[in-house]
Design a protein around this nucleic acid. Structure first.
Length: 309
DNA sequence: CTCGATCCCTGGACGC
DNA sequence: TGCGTCCAGGGATCGA
């Protein structure tokens, strides 16, 4: 399941293998995960893929503008100002793959999009469950889309992290998964970082101490960097753009380890549902938050203010 | 504001 | 071998 480290791994792979190539043609098969399929068919042929980078869990394929690329086969001038106001956004969802193939290679099942490149290879998008997403966006629409997302967890500083997390009464697990708070964190790295920081997933953001906030921010960053170094976690079928699985799953301390013992304290690892997602944590070193004061069982207190701030 | 429920979708695990 | 059932999960959406 591609989260930040996996998407980063794929993006780096694509940057190394298909950046600079020109898209000659586009073939669409299933399109229900594409925002505007017609726009992709119409606008992408002829474009250069200038650069591929990760944005949260998205891959951003920056496309060269038409004018600069009028001459077919013209070398890309690295120094030339790049028009980054046009991009293809690709979200891999749960099971998405985007990788170059030689045309002789048989089309994998669930290959929904093929971009034929100017060197004869095909950049193919495969996604059995179609939980992914693809969108061609330009100008204000692109800016607007990207602005919906929160801070990059690799770069967010203490102040901003605290501002985004501490102000909320949502549970920390929900906040970590909320792409509008932080972009790129998914279920695995949320659980792993909470374990490392010794924070229970159901603890409310507002109730985290400043020490916990900083521990969480730092551990999350360290874990993500280590996972990128190991080319991501391959728990189901994740492979990078070159078809190679990652190795970080070997370092998972709680994720997928329900019933086993905690490598830190030996207590049992439990799995509960928080924010609608399975959450793995240690019964010993991630103490449950104090039960929220129950409205039902409290005796009637002061009349509720009728004004709504 | 925050919550859970529901939907999307397919493959893999499991039980018989 | 082959079926049926359950489950996983990112994200959108909706009602509570």
């Amino acid at each position: 399941m591609p989260e930040l480290p996996e998407v980063e791994t794929v993006a780096r792979g694509l940057q190394a293998t298909v950046a600079g190539r020109r898209i000659l043609s586009v073939t669409l098969r299933k399109t229900d995960f594409i925002d505007d399929p017609a726009a992709i068919e119409r606008e992408l042929p002829g474009r250069h893929i200038v650069k591929i980078e990760r944005f949260g869990k998205f891959m951003l394929l920056q496309l060269g503008n038409r004018m600069a690329l009028a001459a077919p086969g013209a070398a890309i001038d690295e120094a030339a100002p790049v028009d980054v106001s046009e991009a293809l956004l690709v979200h891999l969802g749960m099971t998405g793959h985007l990788a170059p193939h030689v045309p002789e290679q048989p089309l994998a099942k669930h290959t929904h999009v093929t971009f034929t490149l100017d060197d004869g290879r095909e950049l193919r998008y495969t996604d059995p469950r179609r939980f992914g997403r693809m969108a061609y966006l330009t100008g204000a629409a692109l800016t607007e889309e990207l602005e919906r997302f929160g801070a990059d967890p690799l770069h967010v500083d203490a102040e901003e992290f605290a501002r985004r997390v501490h102000a909320s009464r949502a549970r920390i697990k929900a906040l970590l998964l909320d792409q509008g708070v932080l972009r790129g964190v998914g279920n695995i790295y949320a659980d792993e970082s909470l374990w490392k920081a010794k924070i229970h997933p159901a603890k409310t953001g507002a109730r985290l101490t400043s020490a916990e906030l900083e521990a969480l921010r730092k551990e999350l960053r360290k874990i993500l960097l280590k996972a990128i170094e190991l080319r991501g976690s391959s728990v189901s079928d994740f492979v990078d753009a070159g078809g190679i699985p990652g190795d970080y799953q070997q370092y998972h301390k709680v994720y997928g380890r329900e019933g086993q013992s905690c490598p830190r304290c030996g207590a049992k690892i439990k799995r509960i549902i928080v924010a609608g997602r399975s959450s793995h944590f240690c019964l010993g070193c991630q103490p449950a938050p104090r039960a929220r004061p129950s409205r039902k069982n409290t005796k009637p207190n002061r009349p509720r203010a009728t004004s709504n701030r």
